[in-house]
Nucleic acid binder design. Structure first.
Ligand SMILES: NC(=O)c1ccc[n+]([C@@H]2O[C@H](COP(=O)([O-])OP(=O)(O)OC[C@H]3O[C@@H](n4cnc5c(N)ncnc54)[C@H](O)[C@@H]3O)[C@@H](O)[C@H]2O)c1
Ligand SMILES: NC(=O)c1ccc[n+]([C@@H]2O[C@H](COP(=O)([O-])OP(=O)(O)OC[C@H]3O[C@@H](n4cnc5c(N)ncnc54)[C@H](O)[C@@H]3O)[C@@H](O)[C@H]2O)c1
Lengths: 213, 213
DNA sequence: ACCTTTTTGTGATTTTTTTCACATTTTTTA
DNA sequence: TAAAAAATGTGAAAAAAATCACAAAAAGGT
């Protein structure tokens, strides 16, 4: 399954939360298409690939659909995540309250700078050396890299060797991983550059999909 | 030209900076391909679409290539950017030193919370009401939205009406813009969800392209 | 001077992704 | 009960993106 499809499923799910809050019980492929910025056929095809079906003429039941999407996306159970590098981006992620309702829980931060250590906070910041043990002990599978680019590859290797399988990387370098590791490189500078290119050119509109940069 | 192509050009440029620092004078399509994680044919095709040519057998001259890419990407002149919403993400962006060498300069922040105001800093934080005037006066064309999702659409409209043409949006909502506006939605929650999906499934490896979420 | 090697540049081909279009099902209306 | 209307679900078609593969150019060797 392609990344693009999964990102769309997440978007449908987010749109559904909003629709639900607005009181919608049923939803049609073109409502979701509008909300997410794709065609209705795309919505239906995406669902069809995961065996999600609605009712002809009746559309989809919001509550059911949310549940199915969350199941597919692995959001039916809490996912624990650690952050390595508790600087600007790292602490932004640690303090973000929006992850909770998505069943994503940031459980600890790690840094090499002793000034950052704070084992007593709700989300403790521990020394990097403690990471391996922590990951093994708690069975952590997902981590965020928010260290300077020079340190990123090395940090990646420690994380992977400790047992982490999925990584969101903010360092502006294309990290490469082993076969069984998932790495999602998010390069915010690139995203800005992209905008700069397009405003200096004819092609306007919403640039979508693929942060993967 | 597709977003993916432009993102790749940016990546080539970044890879070239590193190669240059390492002392490389010439570079071949497969060096860049390796660095960025694409095929050599892709590199050459991308270049060919922008009329960039190298020398058969001799490859490309690093310095020339960097210059051409920066020209195409609009990085040959400084681009001023404002931030709206000076919370965690907004201040992370404002404090990030890495943008300077990319000719991206964050010139001001805006917020509705008076506690955030600080007109005397190098990068001042001003009240939201001042944004329109500031943008018009300084001819700002690019802005970053880092406000809560509920405020995002409204903030977008103010920014666009003030004359901003390109927007990087961190609020987890698919902002829609007018014809001549470029909006790049970056949804970090989606990027994490994506990782969670893939580690719970067979498909592993580097997830790339498309932050656009 | 000629042969060999290396690498580009790109048309052709393949693969992937999206959109079309319509038969089918369900609901409503009369 | 039949006809009309509104959606889905999905093969087929189209469009977009990536890869192949090879002629051509440049460099070096003998
Ligand atoms: N802040 C932004 O807006 C922004 C924008 C684009 C890219 N980035 C990238 O995101 C990453 C983080 O940026 P930031 O602004 O949060 O940086 P930062 O300097 O604020 O924080 C980096 C943190 O990593 C820690 N660190 C350094 N080496 C480490 C190591 N080996 N192990 C563990 N911790 C280590 C430092 O002590 C520090 O706390 C960087 O790679 C940066 O290039 C940031
Ligand atoms: N922090 C993260 O790691 C993270 C992760 C995913 C998504 N996001 C999204 O990024 C956005 C910013 O997140 P954050 O963590 O920086 O939030 P934050 O709460 O730290 O900061 C938001 C800032 O926006 C200001 N604000 C609110 N309404 C405003 C308005 N109408 N005009 C101007 N300013 C206004 C607030 O005063 C505050 O300073 C949010 O939409 C959030 O959902 C953040």
């Amino acid at each position: 399954m392609s990344k693009r499809t999964i990102i769309r499923l997440s978007k449908y799910k987010n749109a559904l939360y909003r629709l639900k809050k607005m009181g919608f019980v049923k939803v049609f492929s073109d409502n979701l298409a509008d909300a997410v910025g794709v065609t209705p056929a795309q919505v239906r095809k995406d669902f069809s690939m995961f065996g999600i079906s609605g009712n002809k003429r009746g559309g989809y039941t919001v509550a059911e659909l949310v549940e199915k999407l969350n199941k597919i996306l692995g959001k039916d159970k809490v996912q624990d995540v650690i952050v390595v590098g508790t600087g600007h981006i790292g602490t932004a992620m640690m303090n973000y309250r929006g992850f909770e309702k998505e069943n994503i829980r940031i459980v600890a931060g790690f840094d090499i700078d002793p000034a950052k250590y704070n084992a007593d906070e709700k989300i403790p910041v521990l020394q990097l050396d403690k990471m391996r043990g922590y990951v093994k002990e708690h069975g952590i599978r997902v981590g965020i890299i928010a260290v300077p680019d020079i340190a990123a590859q090395q940090v990646l290797e420690i994380m992977v060797s400790a047992g982490i399988k999925g990584i969101l990387n903010f360092a502006p370098i294309n990290l490469k991983g082993e076969e069984d590791t998932v790495i999602n490189n998010v390069n915010l500078g690139l995203e800005l550059e992209n905008i700069i290119y397009f405003i200096n050119t004819d092609k306007k509109g919403v640039i979508n999909e693929d942060t993967d940069a």
